[in-house]
Amino acid sequence: MKIGILTSGGDCPGLNAIIRGVCKPAIQHYGMEVWGIQSGFRGLVDDNVVPLEEKVLSGLLNSAGTVLGTSRDMPFKRRFSASSEDKPSMMMKTIKKHGFDCIVCIGGNGTQDTAYQLSKLGVNVVTIPKTIDNDVEGTDVCYGFDSAVSIATDAIDRLHSTASAHQRVMVIEVMGHNAGWIALYSGMAGGGDIILIPELGYNIHNVGSKIIERLKQGKPYSIVVVAEGIKTMENKKAAQFIAEEIEYETGFETRETVLGYIQRGGIPTAYDRNLATRMGGFAAQLIEGKQYGQMVSLNGSTIMPVPLEKIAGKARLVNEDNDLIIQGKRMGICFG
C-alpha cells in the first residue's frame, strides 16, 4: 500500500513524534510505502510530496516541530481566483497522480473537517487529533495537550514566588479561544486561585471579592489564570483587561503575563510521546485493515476508531460538571 501523511493547522510540541508513530509501523511492520505531504493540505494542492524512508524517522521522537511543515489552508473554503481549477480538484489530481491508497491527516478541528470533506469525495482517509486546545470531539485527549499544560503549569509555578515576594496579583493568560482546557488543567495543577475560561463566563466583581477575601485570610497575593478567549471589553487582550479590572476593583498592584506561542514550542512530554506512538500505530493498523473515514481516539485508556462523520464540525468544550471544576470549587477556587 502507498500512503501519504500530512500535518495541518497550528503546530504543537512534537508533531514529529506522531509522524514517527505512524510511519515506523507502516513501513517496518506492514510493508507500506510512505510519502510526506509538505505544508498540510497545501502540499496536496501544489503536489509537494516527498518519499519518507525509515532512516528519515530516526531521532524524531523527542524533536520539536514537524519535518513536514504545516499550514492553516482550508481548501474546501477558499478557491483560487486566478485559476479555472479549485483546490479540491487539484488535491484529487495529486492523490490520483501518486496513487495514494490512503491519506493520514494529523490536526485539530479544521483538519478533521477537511479530511471528512475529502472522504466524501471518495478519498480514503484516517485522522489523528492533534491540538493543544484539546477541543476535538470524540476523544478524551488530543496529542499536544499534555505538553502545553506542562509548559503553562511550569510558568504558573514560577509566578508564585514573584507574586509572593511582591505581594501582587499575577494574571497569566494561556491559549484557548473557545475551549478552556489549558487554563483549567494548568490552573488547577499550578495552584491558581482564580481560573477563568470561556465556557463558564465570569463576573469581575466576584473576582475582586475573592482577592479581597484572600487578603483578609492573610494571603496577600493571588494567581489568576485566564484563557485567551474569555470575553473582554474594547477588544483588549484577556490578561490586560482582567489585570486592569482587578486593580480598579481592589486597588491591588496587578501584573499580567501572556504565554502565547511558547505553549506550542519545544519537545513533547513523555505522556505525549507515548500517546503519539499508540495513536500512530493504531492509525497504521486501521489502514492495513482498510478501515477508512475514521479518527483515532483515546477513550479512557483505550485507543479506538471514531467515524469522522460523527465528529466533523463539532467541538469538545469544558462542562460545568467537570470533576476538576467541582473539586476546585470545593477547595475554594474561584471560577468567576
Rank of each mutant, 00 (worst) to 15 (best):
L57D: 02
G180P: 01
H177F: 08
I230S: 05
V34I: 06
G10L: 12
E85T: 10
R278Q: 12
N206F: 10
N203Y: 07
R316Y: 12
M91D: 09
E234D: 15
E245G: 06
R330I: 08
L308K: 08
I262G: 05
R72H: 14
S89F: 13
D113P: 00
S301E: 15
I197P: 03
E173K: 12
K329A: 11
F100E: 05
K97S: 14
Y248H: 09
N124T: 03
I182S: 06
A179W: 04
V45P: 02
D154K: 15
R20L: 05
A283I: 11
F282E: 05
V225H: 01
C105M: 11
I27S: 01
N109I: 15
R72Q: 12
M295L: 15
L200F: 10
L121A: 08
K329N: 12
K210N: 02
R316N: 15
M170A: 09
G65D: 09
E256F: 15
G187N: 03
G328I: 02
F145N: 01
A189S: 10
K231L: 10
V67R: 12
V56N: 12
T277F: 09
G21D: 08
I106K: 07
N274G: 11
S58V: 09
R214A: 05
D140W: 02
L61H: 09
G280I: 06
C334T: 04
F252T: 04
I5F: 13
S209Q: 14
C142Q: 01
I262F: 15
M74V: 14
A276Q: 07
V123A: 05
L184D: 02
D73P: 00
E53T: 13
K55H: 13
N62R: 14
L308R: 07
K93Y: 02
R214G: 04
C142N: 07
L275K: 06
H177G: 11
L308D: 03
K237N: 11
F76Y: 15
L184E: 00
M175W: 04
P129F: 06
F252M: 14
T232I: 08
D321W: 04
F41P: 03
E288N: 07
A155E: 09
I223W: 03
V169K: 01
G4V: 07
L324T: 10
I194P: 00
M175E: 00
W181G: 01
E173R: 11
D86W: 11
M91C: 13
P13I: 13
I3C: 04
S119I: 07
T70F: 09
G208L: 06
K93Q: 12
V149H: 00
G40R: 07
I156R: 00
G21W: 01
M279P: 01
G122W: 13
K87P: 00
I37E: 05
H29P: 00
G9H: 10
M170D: 02
G187Q: 03
V169C: 10
G122P: 06
P51E: 11
G138M: 01
I333S: 07
I103M: 14
K24V: 14
K314V: 09
G180A: 09
D11N: 13
K314G: 06
T250G: 03
Q38Y: 07
A26T: 08
D11V: 11
T254E: 02
G4D: 05
I132E: 10
M32D: 04
G110W: 11
S150W: 04
I287W: 01
L68C: 13
G289V: 00
E247I: 02
I156S: 03
N62A: 15
I5P: 10
T257Y: 07
